[in-house]
Design a protein around this nucleic acid. Structure first.
Length: 424
RNA sequence: GGAGGGAUAGCGAAGUUGGCCGUAACGCGCUCGUCUCGAAAACGAGUUACCGGUUAAUAACCGGUACGUGGGUUCAAAUCCCACUCCCUCCGCCA
């Protein structure tokens, strides 16, 4: 959530920022809503002042043994007037709140302005895509042929966009989870965390997926619980409603969880293989930072995520998303894209964002120096990395002419010494 | 699922015959001061957040709201009533 004061005091700035983000909310209309809210508030507050003062008089009169029946009837009317006005004020408050909850974060000044992904800029690049002396296969075909990925049986027991992994593929998923977590906990200082895979509505509002993106989430029928679309939700909400001691910042957490996404708006997009599943496993990184330090923390975290690809020997590039392409809660986002030989293109494998105080304001996460005043902390999140997409990238980049797949050296110890997935 | 207890500031905790009890007793923490070469200890003072008005001001001032959440009763609710959430203890069931 953005700061209400920003809308009140710099409406033109906000309008421009929203336009840059391809968001069509109207700030002028909002200011009218807010003006109405303030007018009602001023009115009802002065009546409440009257009632409070009069009630204190009643208390005094009663103590002195005077009759209070006249005052009671008179104040009864005032009291019910206040009740009616209170209802209107609450409605006006809701209108303001509802609007604010649908406003995306303000882009950071370093973010390129543009309407869609064509305005994204490349920050840097690692590795040289391997030259193949044969036609590289798509990971879905490879994985299927090697007996590791079974989309058909998953579809039978559940539906489309689910997968069953078997044998080496299931082992490789487990290896990747352990490898990623080990690097983050041992080299990068993250605290490994086990979190609920279902969260309540307040948590999902806190990170910004709600109220705007209800259709992307799986919700339980009989409880107000949602399946986590990413561990960003439980990890960021870890410190919801807390005041963090500034000297302990930054705080860094990682968690491997399944992620559940209905992908309602993406029917037919990127349907091949493991790329866009309803359920996938991902290791998520979340950091809580001091406002002055959060942009540095973003660079750091993005480095943590991309380092994994280097360790796996996978070529990638880092893209700075432009204003029109960023997610709702982000002030700045780097996408890391891994080389996918079968499509001869880089595909998103990680998204690292600084959400500044946007989520912190929604989830009420503050930080405070010793003896000082609390301010909203900054929250950051990044994928480090999704297991399915990493597995897909390994299959495609390390495939051999005979249909087998060599394994990256870093994973061999995690695969009980297996160096190669032999063709069947 | 059943029975009982609980939720009050950054933390602990007092307050339930309704009314100067919310800038919320008391304690811890934190800030400032005294003492000290310095520190600790001791002593003294200070320290809720948010919203609205006013304002150049996120200063001062005035007002409002908040005692888990949402309702209700009342001139007036931390206090009485109803529903719900979470935590603790015990019982039952269970991986």
């Amino acid at each position: 959530m953005i700061d209400l004061k920003l809308a009140q005091k710099q409406p033109e700035f906000l309008s421009t920022a929203l336009a840059d983000r391809q968001c069509d909310l109207n700030v002028t209309d909002f200011l009218a809503l807010d003006a109405r809210r303030r007018k009602l508030l001023a009115e009802v507050e002065s009546l409440k002042n009257k009632l409070n003062t009069a009630s204190a008089d009643v208390a005094r009169q009663k103590r002195e043994g005077q009759s209070i029946t006249e005052a009671q009837t008179r104040l009864g009317e005032l009291s019910s007037t206040i009740k009616e006005l209170d209802v209107q004020t609450a409605e006006a408050n809701d209108a303001v709140e509802t609007w604010l909850l649908r406003v995306p974060n303000i882009p950071h000044s370093s973010v390129p302005v543009g309407r869609d992904e064509t305005a994204n800029t490349e920050a840097h690049r690692f590795g040289i895509p391997r030259a193949f002396d044969f036609d590289p296969k798509k990971h879905g075909e490879l994985g299927g042929a090697l007996g590791g990925l079974d989309f058909k049986r998953a579809a039978r027991m559940t539906g489309s966009r689910f997968v069953v992994t078997l044998g080496w593929a299931a082992h490789l998923e487990r290896a990747l989870v352990n490898f990623f977590l080990d690097i983050h906990t041992q080299n990068n200082g993250y605290t490994e965390t086990g979190v609920p895979y279902m969260v309540n509505r307040a948590a999902v509002i806190g990170t910004g997926q709600l109220p705007k993106f209800e259709e992307d989430l799986f919700r339980l029928r009989d409880r107000d619980y949602y399946l986590v679309p990413t561990a960003e939700v439980p990890l960021t909400n870890l410190h919801a409603a807390e005041v963090l001691d500034e000297e302990y910042l930054p705080l860094a957490y990682c968690a491997a969880t399944p992620c559940f996404r209905s992908e309602a708006g993406n029917a037919g997009k990127d349907t091949h293989g493991l790329i866009r599943m309803h359920q996938f496993t991902k290791i998520e990184l979340v950091r809580f930072a001091h406002p002055d330090d959060s942009m540095n923390q973003l660079e750091l975290m993005c480095g943590h995520a991309s380092r994994l690809l280097e360790l796996l020997g996978l070529p990638y590039r880092v893209i700075t998303l432009c204003t029109g392409d960023m997610g709702f809660s982000a002030a700045k986002t780097y996408d890391i894209e891994v080389w996918m030989p079968a499509q001869r293109t880089y595909r998103e494998i990680s998204s690292c964002s600084n959400c500044t105080d946007f989520q912190a304001r929604r989830a009420n996460i503050r930080c405070k120096p010793k003896g000082g005043k609390a301010v909203f902390a900054h929250t950051l999140n990044g994928s480090g990395l999704p297991v399915g997409r990493a597995l897909a990238a390994i299959l495609e980049n390390y495939q051999q002419k005979d249909g087998g797949v060599r394994l990256p050296k870093a994973l061999v110890p995690y695969m009980d010494g297996m160096e190669c997935i032999e063709p069947v």
